[in-house]
Design a protein around this nucleic acid. Structure first.
Length: 257
DNA sequence: ATGGCTATGTAGCATAGA
């Protein structure tokens, strides 16, 4: 079972990239962030034509998340339970016995901004929800754009980014809190190339110069980690014309038959 | 050099992303 996540930065613009990427990589589950589409405008027909079902929670202009799946998705949850939030950032469902959580964590803009405080409050509520959900779903995966670089090795210039948004101690503590609940960063289960990133600024030829950040992650519960055979970032779509600024991340899980 | 791109909503630029 191949799980994947991709911040597409507008599904309307990126739909051709997404469809060809799905054809080339045959993921079983695709978690999308920043679809920027109202639900009425979601490209259901194009997704279904590839043999996938789609569940989504979107809004105009900003945010928006979706899960595409070959197998049926049940027990769909939109948003963090008991956390009032206008912003469409979370959708979760059970697929083939695995609880899939698709998340678009707030960016935070700048440390000490209102958006940063919203990010930390959001992460706190999210973490509490995951803590409870892990008791019900031992096979749990959280895929998405965390907007957190977990360590300095995930940042092209750690000195310049020290203490900045995406790298600050409270954000990394929030990430570590998820780990402490019984999750692992599947990317670090395997040897990886240095300067492995999932996001590069559109400006300054950042991608070509390998000036990026690893902020999109697939966290797996321990029981799923035991069956994870690979996790990798696919930088190929970032090379296309009019790319998303994020690259997709994939993890493969060996499911018992 | 605190910019630099890109997408959206909307018809000029403002806002947001990370």
């Amino acid at each position: 079972m191949i799980l994947s996540t991709w911040n597409v930065n507008s599904l309307k613009v990126r739909l051709p990239h997404l469809l060809s990427w799905m054809e080339g990589n045959s993921p079983d589950v695709v978690c999308l962030q920043e679809t920027k589409l109202e639900d009425a405008k979601f490209p259901v027909a194009e997704i279904e034509a590839l043999g996938y079902c789609a569940i989504f929670s979107g809004q105009k202009t900003y945010n928006g998340v979706a899960i595409l799946s070959r197998l049926p998705a049940t027990d769909v949850q939109r948003g963090i339970p008991d956390f009032a939030d206008e912003q469409r950032r979370v959708i979760a469902a059970t697929i083939a016995g695995v609880r899939i959580v698709c998340a678009y964590v707030p960016n935070g803009q700048a440390v000490d901004s209102d958006k940063y405080r919203y990010k930390l409050a959001w992460l706190s509520a999210f973490s509490e929800w995951i803590r409870q959900d892990l008791a019900s779903y031992p096979n749990l995966a959280i895929l998405g754009d965390y907007n957190i670089a977990p360590g300095d090795e995930d940042v092209h210039d750690p000195a310049a980014w020290a203490g900045q948004v995406l790298c600050s101690r409270p954000e990394r503590d929030a990430f570590d809190k998820l780990i402490g609940l019984g999750m692992k960063d599947s990317f670090r289960l395997f040897p990886q190339a240095e300067r492995s990133y999932t996001w590069w600024d559109y400006r300054m030829n950042a991608f070509r110069r390998k000036m990026g950040m690893r902020i999109d992650h697939i966290l797996l519960s321990h029981s799923l980690c035991d069956r994870c055979t690979r996790c990798q970032i696919d930088i190929e779509p970032r090379k296309l014309e009019r790319p998303s600024d994020h690259a997709p991340v994939l993890a493969e899980i060996r499911l018992e038959s």
